[in-house]
């Protein structure tokens, strides 16, 4: 399973997104606001999810803001840090 696929499954399960399936989440759609509709509380949970499931710590808020744009950007952020 690639990072994007795993990420989508985790998002649906851990954020309890009952009205959407992993397959329905677009790689490029915004995670917050329009798109997946996540909010600031989800952002805090997302930091924990990324660390817990991928071992990647998001310490810098500016980096996190860029990474949380979409599944594409978050997967790229994770892969860049796990490959290092």
């Amino acid at each position: 399973m690639d990072t994007k696929e795993k990420l989508k499954q985790i998002l649906v399960k851990d954020l309890n997104l009952e009205e959407v399936t992993p397959e329905e989440i677009s790689d490029s759609a915004p995670l917050f606001g329009e798109g997946l509709g996540l909010d600031s509380l989800d952002a805090v949970e997302l930091v924990v999810i990324v660390q817990k499931h991928f071992g990647v710590e998001i310490k810098d808020m500016e980096e996190g803001r860029k990474a949380f744009q979409s599944v594409d950007s978050l997967a790229a952020y994770i892969e860049a840090r796990t490959a290092a």
Binding site: L41, V44, E45, V48, Q51, K52, E57
Partner: peptide
């Protein structure tokens, strides 16, 4: 299971 850093904020709330 996850330590301080990975405790769920939603569960805490």
């Amino acid at each position: 299971s996850g330590g301080d850093n990975c405790a769920s904020p939603t569960h805490f709330a």
